[in-house]
């Protein structure tokens, strides 16, 4: 069953003013429980607006967002319950830290849910463990951590609410290559163990290729494509017209194919190795 559905979803900024601008235009999509969705689109394509309508931070101008088949705006007073179920990690989430200790900051979300103090602390500790923060971090001030550590604290703060759907807006932006790898691995392993739904917005096609089951491509406030990762990245020319691209390794293999080498497609380095090694072993036979 679909956990999140958008029906004719439209969002207009500054309606009725001269600055009126359609950011999301008639988007229809349905996301199944347990899927890992990659969201791509160039800057200003409407992807940030779209994800903010999913947890009720923005109220759609028209159309509906359905969570488990129920319109999230059916009871506007209960919109906070929706935000606990659809967790949202914003860009540069480390800027939202405010508590005295890491543990308290991670606890902010769950304590807003009205859980018992013991349950809140349990959840916070579990979330911290998920993002790889050891016990001795928990009593530190979040302001004395490094950039990457701060970001993990912020992500733990959302994971601690145990949302059914986790939305991450460019979680790896501004991290060093190792930090990116570690964070992505943690997100995918979180997804595997909890079996919940994850939406990952990223400008890195490599990150998306590594993690996503399906890709949503936003272009010019429309949902241009919504298909399995392999299918989307097979339409390289179309993506390039939208200011996007395919992962570099996919591009290299398709260029080899164009020159007559007998190789298949690949999304990740591991797949590419599997395609290319046999060629080398045969001594590079030209087809």
């Amino acid at each position: 069953m679909a956990v999140i559905e958008c029906k004719n979803l439209t969002y207009v900024y500054g309606e009725g003013t001269p600055f009126c601008r359609k950011a999301v235009d008639n988007v229809n999509l349905s996301i199944e429980k347990g899927e890992f969705i990659g969201v791509i689109g160039h800057t200003g394509s409407g992807k940030s607006t779209l994800i903010q309508t999913l947890n009720g931070l923005l109220r759609p101008t028209s159309g509906q967002v359905l969570l488990d088949g129920k319109d999230i705006w059916a009871e506007p007073k209960k919109i906070r319950q929706v935000r606990f179920r659809v967790g949202m990690v914003f860009q540069y989430p480390e800027h939202q830290l405010f508590e005295e200790t890491v543990l308290k900051d991670i606890s902010f979300g769950p304590s807003n849910m009205g859980l018992s103090p013991q349950e809140v602390e349990d959840r916070a500790r579990r979330a911290a463990a998920f993002v790889g923060l050891s016990e001795d971090f928990l009593t530190k001030s979040p302001f004395e951590l490094s950039g990457g550590e701060k970001r993990r604290v912020a992500i733990a703060g959302v994971i601690a609410m145990d949302p059914d759907v986790l939305v991450l807006d460019e979680p790896t932006a501004g991290l060093d290559p190792r930090g990116r790898d570690v964070l992505l691995t943690q997100i995918t392993s979180y997804h595997k163990t909890r079996g919940n739904t994850v939406l990952l917005v990223s400008h890195s096609m490599e990150d998306i290729a590594r993690t996503a089951d399906r890709i949503l491509v936003m272009n010019d406030s429309h949902a241009a494509m919504f298909a399995p990762t392999r299918e989307v990245f097979a339409r390289g020319a179309e993506l390039e017209r939208m200011g996007l691209r395919v992962p570099q390794i996919t591009k290299i293999l398709s260029m080899l194919r164009e020159r007559g080498w007998p190789v298949g497609t690949a999304l990740t380095m591991e797949e590419a190795v599997r395609e290319l090694l046999p060629l080398l072993e045969k001594g590079g036979v030209r087809a």
Binding site: L57, R83, H95, N112
Partner: peptide, 16 residues
């Protein structure tokens, strides 16, 4: 703009 972003982020964590 910054305030707006922070408000959204805390609201997403259930700030009332």
């Amino acid at each position: 703009e910054e305030t707006d972003k922070i408000m959204s982020a805390q609201k997403a964590r259930g700030a009332d």
